[in-house]
């Protein structure tokens, strides 16, 4: 494809039950584009973890997925409290999620490490009290 394709979703922060809907939709869209299943899985897992994080910590936000010729870029933007210590947040097992989220199967400190694991690059731009933007890339081909 010569032109960049952009998918944009509002992530509702009020309801943990509906978290992940955007990722399911992205997965469906990428499949329609005929991308290979490994790439689709990596993009959707990374985005899903990001979406869950936005709901748990930031009251929702906006997810944008851009598909260009050589890579897929996922940009997650929220107006949440920001990440206090990014280095710590990237460590497996470090979590600031409340207990009730743990009882739902998340909040074990694996979200950001999983996003890093499944993508080729991740950039976190966070300002306390202002919000966080996470940009992840998965290379194609």
């Amino acid at each position: 494809m010569s032109e960049e394709l952009v998918f944009r979703y509002d992530v509702n922060g009020d309801d943990f039950t509906s978290a992940g809907q955007a990722s399911v939709q992205v997965k469906r869209n990428l499949r329609q584009l005929g991308l290979d299943s490994d790439t689709i899985r990596r993009v959707s897992i990374a985005m899903y973890e990001g979406e869950i994080n936005m709901v748990i910590h930031a009251g929702g936000g906006v997810a944008e997925v851009r598909v260009s010729e050589d890579c897929i870029t996922i940009v997650l933007t929220d107006k949440g409290p920001g990440i206090k210590d990014i280095e710590k947040a990237m460590q497996e097992g470090y979590s600031t999620a409340p207990d009730e989220i743990r009882s739902l199967g998340f909040g074990a400190g694996m979200g950001l490490p999983n996003m890093k694991r499944h993508t080729d690059s991740i950039e976190i731009d966070s300002v306390l009290g202002v919000g966080t933007t996470i940009t992840m890339k998965v290379n194609l081909g």
């Binding site: 978290a19 739902l104 199967g105 998340f106 074990a108 490490p113 694991r117 499944h118």
Partner: peptide, 22 residues
């Protein structure tokens, strides 16, 4: 679920006692 999401396996089955949409 985050542990499930950490390691990709092909054609897998998930056994769990957790019940929610996630």
């Amino acid at each position: 679920m985050s542990d499930v999401l950490a390691y990709v396996k092909d054609q897998a089955v998930l056994l769990t006692g957790l019940v929610n949409t996630q």
